[in-house]
């Protein structure tokens, strides 16, 4: 068994989980919702094993390092953290339906990684030979995953307000009755960002510390750094919007969606469209 086979199983499992969640949306059958969650958890376990196995394989090849050193490995880790956070929210707050809006992000990541990317294990170039790599990547991606979850929740919020209109005292029936109440969605959005914001902050700080250690400059306004700061500004705006009259609810939800779009641009767009010091995705 190789890690690559296990990653294929993971991708397939997330696909099934998403389909079951969509069926859950359509049918409103409780057991389908439960199945969707459990299938996603099974995928999470397989993926955890696969990441561990890939780590071991790199040592067997004599180039041992944590599997977080290139675009492929980072996308896989991103998917893993998204499902991990979904599991946390599912178990803690029992709003299973969120899975229908969050699992697709993880599936998208895995599918793109498995189908469109070079999956080979590469040795670390000198710039990446540092423990800071691990701290930096883990904190950043946990933060990104929390923002992915918040974006899914905000999408639900925006759909629900669009369907029910601004008058939430007359909740619509049908599909919308499956969605948590607006107030709960707003609260969950805030909670997810409360997890993500300190992690992103820590991610930026560990990145700065690493840059200072490797190059002697903690901040050089390189596009990746700047975009991470932009993301940070957007979520800081979100946090203050919530306590400002006239900005609660819909506008805050939009800020959360924009924040995640900026996150994705920071992660992928910067490498694919702009140039800079970061090495992910160069080829």
């Amino acid at each position: 068994m190789t890690s690559s086979m296990l990653f294929n199983v993971t991708t397939f499992t997330y696909l099934i989980s998403m389909i079951v969640f969509f069926a859950f949306l359509a049918s409103r059958s409780k057991s389908l919702g439960m199945a969707g969650s459990y299938i996603a958890y099974a995928g999470l376990i397989v993926q955890t094993a696969a990441i561990g196995l890939r780590w071991k394989e790199s040592y067997d090849m004599g180039v041992g390092h944590a599997p977080m050193s290139n675009l492929y490995e980072s996308i896989v880790f991103f998917s893993w953290t998204i499902i991990l956070l979904f599991a946390y929210i599912d178990i803690r707050y029992k709003y299973r339906i969120i899975g229908a809006f969050v699992v697709p992000f993880a599936l998208l990541g895995m599918a793109w990684a498995q189908l469109g990317m070079n999956t080979g294990i590469e040795p670390l170039v000198p710039a990446l030979q540092s423990n800071w790599l691990l701290y930096h990547v883990i904190t950043c991606f946990l933060g990104y995953a929390a923002f992915a979850v918040a974006c899914g929740i905000s999408t639900m919020y925006l759909i629900k307000t669009a369907v029910e209109g601004s008058n939430s005292s007359t909740p619509a029936g049908g599909l919308m009755s499956m969605f948590p109440p607006l107030k709960a969605l707003d609260d969950l959005n805030y909670r997810a960002i409360m997890i993500g914001f300190p992690l992103l902050t820590l991610g930026i700080i560990t990145g700065a510390a690493w840059a200072n250690y490797a190059w002697g400059t903690y901040w050089s306004w390189d596009p990746k750094e700047t975009w991470s700061l932009i993301v940070w500004f957007v979520y800081a705006a979100f946090l203050h919007a919530r306590i400002t009259k006239g900005w609660v609810g819909k506008r805050a939800a939009w800020l959360s969606v924009i924040g995640f779009a900026a996150t994705i641009f920071c992660y992928l767009g910067v490498n694919l469209l702009l140039s800079g010091l970061h090495s992910y995705g160069g080829n």
Binding site: W221, L229, I230, F233, V234, A236, L274
Partner: peptide, 24 residues
Amino acid sequence: SLKLTLFLLISLSLTSIIGTVLPQ
């Protein structure tokens, strides 16, 4: 005012984009 805070945070994010698109 917190409105000014929001204005500043959003302005800082939008203007920061310039430097990532144009060479510095």
